[in-house]
């Protein structure tokens, strides 16, 4: 299945991936509203990590064995049979955070307001996720790799 990979050397730590992700997952799809006004407040599902000159963005890596799904207490996390993406059923997620504890990338975020987890959904079947499209230095690649 297709995954988003990083090119660490190309990342300039501009955080635009986070900004676009947050807008994409807002109700209004408007930057200002998404950041300043919307409630519940949308959360970016990608995180830029930085240390000195090193930086890269992290999101759900769609792990083959999906430890989050195997640990899920409620059965909310499954692999979509068609897209192959790891998906969370918001109706079933109770925000117990067990998935957070087993995620090797800390790619799952707590939406404390809603009491549910949020994570990268690959922009729900979009040809190109918004973080990849809007990365100014092409530090993100969305592609299929056999692993």
């Amino acid at each position: 299945m297709k995954r988003i990979y990083i090119k660490e050397q190309a990342c300039i730590a501009c955080h635009l991936c986070e900004v676009h992700c947050q807008r994409q997952h807002s109700q209004s799809k408007d930057f200002i509203k998404a950041f300043k006004r919307e409630s519940p407040r949308p959360l970016p599902r990608v995180r830029v990590e930085e240390k000195g000159a090193l930086s890269f963005s992290v999101r759900c890596q769609q792990c083959e064995d999906a430890p989050c799904a195997q640990a899920c207490l409620t059965g909310a996390i499954t692999r979509d049979p068609i897209s192959g993406a790891v998906t969370v059923d918001e109706e079933k997620c109770v925000g117990c955070w067990t998935c957070l504890l087993v995620c090797p990338f800390a790619a799952i975020r707590q939406d404390a307001e809603q009491g549910k987890t949020v994570r990268c959904d690959l922009c729900q079947g979009a040809d190109m996720p918004v973080c990849v499209v809007n990365c100014p230095n092409e530090a993100l690649i969305y592609t299929e790799v056999d692993i």
Partner: peptide, 10 residues
């Protein structure tokens, strides 16, 4: 603050 705990667990 538990958001990064998964990294340590792994």
């Amino acid at each position: 603050d538990i958001e990064k705990s998964g990294i340590v667990y792994n």
